[in-house]
Structures are given as structure tokens and as C-alpha cells.
Design a protein around this nucleic acid. Sequence first.
DNA 1: CGCACGCGGCTAACACCGTTAGCCATGGTG
DNA 2: CACCATGGCTAACGGTGTTAGCCGCGTGCG
Lengths: 180, 180
Amino acid sequence: MTDRAQHIMAAARELLDAEGPDALSMRRIAERVGIRAPSLYKHFPDKAAVEAGLQAQGMTRLTEDLEAAEAEIGADPPLLVLAHAYRRHALAGPHLYRLTHSRPLARTALPEGLEDRAALPLARAVQGDIDIARSFWAFAHGMVVLELDGRFPPGADLDAAWRTGCEAFAQAKRAGSQGS
Amino acid sequence: MTDRAQHIMAAARELLDAEGPDALSMRRIAERVGIRAPSLYKHFPDKAAVEAGLQAQGMTRLTEDLEAAEAEIGADPPLLVLAHAYRRHALAGPHLYRLTHSRPLARTALPEGLEDRAALPLARAVQGDIDIARSFWAFAHGMVVLELDGRFPPGADLDAAWRTGCEAFAQAKRAGSQGS
DNA sequence: CGCACGCGGCTAACACCGTTAGCCATGGTG
DNA sequence: CACCATGGCTAACGGTGTTAGCCGCGTGCG
């Protein structure tokens, strides 16, 4: 990726973080870079390519945050630690989270192996039980998007819901790793 | 709601179901009704009001589907039955589901008490344990949106993931309803 | 050294979007 | 009969993504 292209991606990222997805227009991005909108097409084929780049940023950041959380697992239940990190990650950059994880993923624009790497901390936490991993992932993603959309009643105790969900899956993990 | 307004809502719904959210423009809706776009504003203040009406349709349909599923709970685990109905509901009308449940809810445009009524079947299934209800709801919503967005690997056994998640929450419910 | 070429800007424009202003026909009501 | 609200309409504005076509500058090559 050329220097200018990286500059454009940074501008897009700032715009998204600061003003949300509706503000992410080619003209607004160009304005931040100091050029006109059509010039963006010398660096990216279309807006979808810019958004794909943002998704790559989002996946990278998530991977880093999850790996950092994994490194700090001590006596606490691993699922609770990862869940906490996941929620913190999403709330720290809600617009990027939505753009990255709440729509189809532009996999071809992703660094090789990144998607798998993002899944590894969770896979290790559930000792490779793929069904637990997928359902727990859905739980965490669901909690996050429902919170971001203000779907829970005001004043709902989300910490308690997170804890309950994590315990349910931790329990299932214990049950699953023993013989039936 | 006037006759014409209902006609417009029906046209919007057909358009959404047939061509997805990107096709849901005021001009396309008007075209289906046989009028011009500005005339829509004699019946709705703006596009958001039309979308709010669609959300009301989505909530109503979900409520009906969940209540119907609840009525057919027999020997099967209640959470599994509701989960199955939930997934079926979402996959039957993915565009309406996304518009209704994957963005902030226009509560003021909703029939009185509908949102609560939609939550009741699940609340009854978990015997009022609000934390289980919320985390299970997040799980189900997460599974659905991840599936709709094609986020799971191709060939992933989603039935197994659903089953695993349902069992985890059913287990937690049993544990929670006994003394510690 | 000069020329060619391509990189990366630019303006103008197109088709679409939501939305507003303002006009007018129709039909019911005081 | 007069009036006025209802509900159509056209024209238009500012926004969107995107394309066509132009041009200046810098680099590499003959």
C-alpha cells in the first residue's frame, strides 16, 4: 500500500471514529486529505475498497486486544476475561466495530490468516470445542450490538447478563470436556 | 392509519423483502404505489417514519412467531423450541429482520406494549430469570446476524452451535432455579 | 539532452438519494 | 355557493458514489 493510500485510510478512520458511518463519504474523506473526491479513485477502486481497508483495521485491532487479554489471563475464568476485553474493544470504537463486524466481511482485502488469528484466543479458551466457541462468539457479538443499538432497557444490568452468559458457557465447557 | 398509508407501508414491505434495504428509497416506494416520491410526504413526515412502520411490522411478526412457537412447546426443551422459531423467523425475512432488530428501535412508533409482549415467551421459558433471558436473547440474535452476514466459515455446523448454546443456557437455568 | 509516459491531481457531469416549496384539482362542508 | 383541506403534481436543492476527460509534473529512457 502506497503512502498516499495509507494517508487516505487514516483520514477515513478518523472521520468514522469522530462522526460515525453516515459521515464517511468520499467527499468528506477527500476533504480531510486535502484533495477532491474523484482523486480518491486513483488510489482505491471504489468506496467499498476503503471500507474493506477499515474492516482490516478493525480485525487487526480486535486481534491485538484479544491476544493482549489472553496474555493476562490469571486465576479468572478465561471466558470472562475474553468477554470483558471484547466488550471493552467494541465500546472503545463502536463505529469501527459495527463497520467491521456487523456486515459481510471483505475477506479478500484482509491480511492472510488474520481472521483465523482473531479466533485463536477464544478457540484456546474453550480448548478447541468449536461449537462452544461459535455460540459464545455469537453471545458476545449479540451483547455488544444490542448494547450499541440501545436495545436493552435503560438501566438494565448488562454486567450481570454478561456474567450469566459467561458462566453458562464455562459450565458447558466443563461438561463437554469430561466424558458424557 | 389511513388506507393510503397502509398501502404505502405494504409497498415498502414488498420492496424491502424483494430487493433489500438499498432498494428501499422513497422514489422506489412511490413508484410501486403509483405516485411520485414527494406525495409520500403527505402521509409520512420522512423516510424514518416509514422505516419505523416497518420495524413495527417486524416486531409484530416476531411476537406472533414466538407466541406460536411457545404454544407448541411439548416435551422438547423450551429454549430449543424458541431458538428454532427465532432462527426460522429471521431467515424467512432477513431484510425485515435486520431493519427491525439490527439498529436502534423506533419505540415511539411501536404499538403500546408490543416490545414487552415480544419478550414474554422467552421470559416465561426462563421462569423470569432476567439475566438468563437477556444473555440468551443476545446469543440468539448474535447467531442470526452472524449467519445472515455470512460470518461463519462455509460449511460450519450451525445447528450444532445453536444446540450447544441452548443447552448451555438450559443448564444455567436449572442451576439458577435451585438454591446455590 | 529531450522526449515520452504515467502518476496523481483537477473540473464537469451523471444518476441517484431525501426533502422542500409551491401549484392545482377534487371533493366535502358550512 | 364558497371555502378549504386532502393529496396529487413539477421543479428544485444539496447531498451521494462514480466516470470521463484534461493537465502538469517528475522520472526514466533513447
